[in-house]
């Protein structure tokens, strides 16, 4: 069913994109340099421990995809026809936008989880702090002399 739909999309779209040309040599070089830069920056960030490995793979995979499409023009042309883009360069842009959106959603999910964990930690800390204060107060009230002595000891230490 899906295959038939894609076939139909390709055949019906092919007439209007008959003049599709592959990416210019210069565009391919720029895409390749861009991908290489991403790989170098990501590796460096992981080396400096500023980026965790779990977040790095998405960037490396994207750089790999850009390189693959830059090298394999047939694949890029096929993809361009599939999505009905006007030129192979806009296919690359479309891919970039999809990638950024996916990344943003992933970050939002992680942020939601982190916010919840942060809230739990802060609440638990506040409750424990209040309980410690209350216990200290009770201890002082029940044995004021002893508490005073231990306070003085603490000050000396």
């Amino acid at each position: 069913m899906i295959g038939a739909t894609i076939d139909f999309a390709l055949t019906s779209a092919s007439w209007s994109f008959a003049d599709l040309s592959p990416m210019h040599q210069r565009q391919r070089v720029v895409a390749f340099i861009g991908a290489l830069t991403v790989v170098i920056v990501v590796f460096e960030l992981v080396r400096r421990r500023k980026l965790r490995e779990e977040y790095s793979w998405v960037w490396i995979a994207t750089a790999g995809m850009v390189t693959l499409l830059g090298l394999n023009q047939d694949l890029l042309m096929w993809l361009t026809k599939l999505i009905g883009a006007a030129s192979s360069a806009s296919t690359m842009f479309f891919g970039a936008i999809i990638f950024l959106m996916a990344l943003c959603i992933q970050f939002s999910i992680r942020l939601s989880r982190l916010t919840h964990r942060q809230r739990t930690l802060a609440q638990r800390m506040a409750l424990l702090e209040e309980e410690v204060t209350e216990l200290r107060r009770r201890a002082k009230r029940s044995a004021p002399d002893k508490a005073q002595r231990s306070d003085q000891k603490g000050e000396v230490a």
């Binding site: 609440q123 506040a126 209350e134």
Partner: peptide, 25 residues
């Protein structure tokens, strides 16, 4: 009053929730 202090602002709902948790405890 007894006082529960959040280390930073977390919103009215969270403040209430902390109070409920204190009541449960």
């Amino acid at each position: 009053a007894r006082v529960l202090r959040h280390p930073f602002n977390m919103g009215y709902g969270t403040a209430l929730h902390s109070g409920y948790c204190a009541a449960m405890r």
